[in-house]
Amino acid sequence: MIPLSHYLIVSGILFSIGLAGLLLRRNLLLVLLSVEIMLNAANLNFIAGSAAHSDTGGQVIAFFVMVVAAAEVTIGLAIAVLLFRKQSSVDTRDISFLKG
């Protein structure tokens, strides 16, 4: 039987990898992909907690996370397509319309 802490450590490593990708990527699409890794790490944490406490609530929360991720991807990709249409680049350094 795998102890809970092993699952927590795996999900922590995955979350850190996603965070590193968020900080070190410059392509907007790959930044969104890193956010997906972080959401999956959180899901793994929820499901490990669900198994430890023998409570189905954790799995239900994992479903809610998936729904929020789907909504986030829809809007994020629409924004990326718009940006690409406007300036034919998805580099996060080029997004500076709001700079004073």
């Binding site: 927590l8 450590i9 430890a52 023998s54 799995q59």
Partner: peptide, 30 residues
């Protein structure tokens, strides 16, 4: 600086995870 921040986060997380109490991983009905 970014990698350092991530490593600090990871070390804090793992320290907390190792100290987590032991549960019997019986699993919830899925």
């Amino acid at each position: 600086a970014g990698i350092l921040a991530v490593l600090i986060f990871l070390s804090l997380f793992i320290r907390a995870a190792v100290r987590s109490p032991e549960f019997k991983m019986i699993g919830a009905p899925g």
